[in-house]
Design a binder for these strands. Sequence first.
DNA 1: CTGAAAGCGCTAACAA
DNA 2: TTGTTAGCGCTTTCAG
Lengths: 321, 321
Amino acid sequence: MSSIRDLARGLGVSIGTVSRALNGRPDVNAATRARILAAAEAQGYSANPAARSLRKGSTNIVGFLFAPPEANSPLADVFFMDVVQGVQGALCDESLELVVLPCPTDDSPEAYVRRLVSRRFFDALIVMGGRDTLNAELVRSGVPVVGLAGSGGLSALVDFDHQATFADAITRLVNLGHTRVAAAPACPGRPVNAARVQHWLTPSTTEAEGRALGVELLSLDPLPTALIVENDAVAAGIYAALRTSGREPGRDLAVISCRSTARGRNLQPTPASYTYDPALIGAALARTVLGLLSGQPADGSVALAVGGVFVEGSSAGRPPV
Amino acid sequence: MSSIRDLARGLGVSIGTVSRALNGRPDVNAATRARILAAAEAQGYSANPAARSLRKGSTNIVGFLFAPPEANSPLADVFFMDVVQGVQGALCDESLELVVLPCPTDDSPEAYVRRLVSRRFFDALIVMGGRDTLNAELVRSGVPVVGLAGSGGLSALVDFDHQATFADAITRLVNLGHTRVAAAPACPGRPVNAARVQHWLTPSTTEAEGRALGVELLSLDPLPTALIVENDAVAAGIYAALRTSGREPGRDLAVISCRSTARGRNLQPTPASYTYDPALIGAALARTVLGLLSGQPADGSVALAVGGVFVEGSSAGRPPV
DNA sequence: CTGAAAGCGCTAACAA
DNA sequence: TTGTTAGCGCTTTCAG
C-alpha cells in the first residue's frame, strides 16, 4: 500500500535516507534511523519485494523443490515437510523467504525447474534426491543448488555423519562387553575406533544383501557376538539368515543398524538404530545455502554432516556369558 | 539474462511490440507476432517477473499456507502435499505460480502471514484449517483467501459434497434391500432421497458421541437394519455399543461412514465409507482461486463441492433375512 | 498496427 | 550525514 515515498514525505527526509536506514546501512544518523524505523513499524511499511528484486537482481527467495518422492529412495521416510520446517527456522532469521516449489507430476520436472530458473525466481535452490543431469544443468546456470546425501552434481551437499554414527555404534557394543564385533557398513571410510572391529564384511544396503551377509557371517568361527549394519533392511535380512540357522537375533547376535527406516517398524527384536532429525537436516541445509549465498565455493562437496540420534532397540544387548 | 530490449533490438522492433506480442494482445500483426514468439522461444526468453510485478502491481503467485496440522483437525488425514499437487495441476495452465509457504512453528503464524501479505507476496492464498481471526484479517486486507470445509471468514470455500455422499449412501443401502435405515449425519440439510430414511438420530462426529448414538439406536424397536454415520470415529463408537449389547456390526447392523478417516484403518469389519480425492480437492481449490482472481464475488460462501468416492468395506452387507 | 516514453518502488552511486 | 537521481525490465497509454 504505502510506498517509501510516503514514508519519507511524512518524516521530512529523502527516500534515499529511508532506504539506507531500513537496510541497516551505517551511514545514517542514529536519531534519524530511530525515527524512520519507528514510523515504518507504525505504518506497517515493508518494502515492495518486486521493486527491490528488480533493482538488486536477486529475489531474497530460497526455493525448496518438492518432487514426489520415489518409493525406493533412501530418503522416502524422511518427512519432507519436517525438513522444510527446519530450513525455515534457520532461514527466516536472515530475512530470506523460503518457498516450497511443487513440481508438477504430469509435466516434466525438468521443464518446470528450467522455467523457474530462467525467470530467476529464487536465489538458491534446495533439492532432495532429484536427477543428476538436471542438477548439473542447474548448477551450470549459476544458481546455488544444495541437496542431501546421494544427490550428484550439486553446488554443495549435506550428508549424514556416517563416521560418527559408526564410531558410536562400535563404542556402544564394546561398552556392552562385546569382544568380537563385525561390521558391514556401506559408507566409505573408517571411524577412529575402527580397531575395535574384528571382522569387516561385505558392504550391504538391501534386505537381499543382508541375507547374503548373514551367510557370510555364519561362516565365521568363532561367530562374532555383535554386528553393525547399514540400515534396517539389512538387519531384516540378517534376522532371516540367523533364524534359518536356528539362531535368534538379539540373543545370539547383537545387531545395530546405522539408519532407522520404515522396514524396521515391525521387526522383532526392534533394531537398535540411528535416526536423523529432520529439523537438524533442515538447519544444515539452510546453513549451507547461507554459506553459498555469501560466497563460499560451490565445489559440490559435503559442506555439513548431520549427526544421528541413537534409538534404543531390543536387538543389541550384552553378549551371551 | 536477456531482457526484452535485447529481443526487440535483435528483431528490429520496439519493446512495446514485443511486450504486446508476448502477452497475446490482439493489436499485433500476425507475422510480427510469429517472428517475436519464435525468437523468444529460440533465446529461451522469459519475462523478468520482478519487473512485471512492479509494473502490474500483482505477482502472479498463488500461495498455499502450510501450517503444521492440528492433531484433532478433521483434515489431518488429508495428505497436504497431494492437495498441493492437485492445485498445481490446475494452476500451471493459467501461468500462475504456486508456492507453498511454510509457516514457522516457533514464530507466530499470524506474524508470518501478515508479513507476507503486507509485502504483497501473492495474489491469492489457499489455507487449510487456520484460525478464523487470522482469516478474517487477511480477507480484510483485500487478498482473496480460499480454504477447505470448516475454515471460517474466508473469501470463498471448497467443501465436501455431503449431500451427494449422503444420498449415495442411502441409495446403496436401499439397493441392498434395507428397509429400516437410520441416519445421524452431522452436516446440515437433507439429500433428495431423504424420505428413504426412517430414523433421524442425534448428529454425531466423535467416537464418544458414536457410543451415545449406539445407545440411542438400540432403544429403537424394531431395530433399524442400517445406519449412516458421519465418519469412521462414529462408526467405531457404534461398533463398541453394538458389541456391548451382544450384537455384531456388519451382521446385525449395516454401517456406512460418510467420511473415511485414519480411525477406520484397523476397524473390523472395515467400514464402508467415502474418501475425498486430494487431487480433486486441489483442483477445486484452484478453480475457486481462479474465479476469485477474475472478479467473482468473495462472499465467503461455498464455491465448489467435491464429491466423495465410495470405498468398499465389510460393514455394509444385505439385511438379515 | 507500431514506436516513444512514462513510471511502477526501490537501491546505490554521486554530489553536497 | 543527507539529498538527488539514474535506472533495474516491464506494461501501457498516447501519438502517429
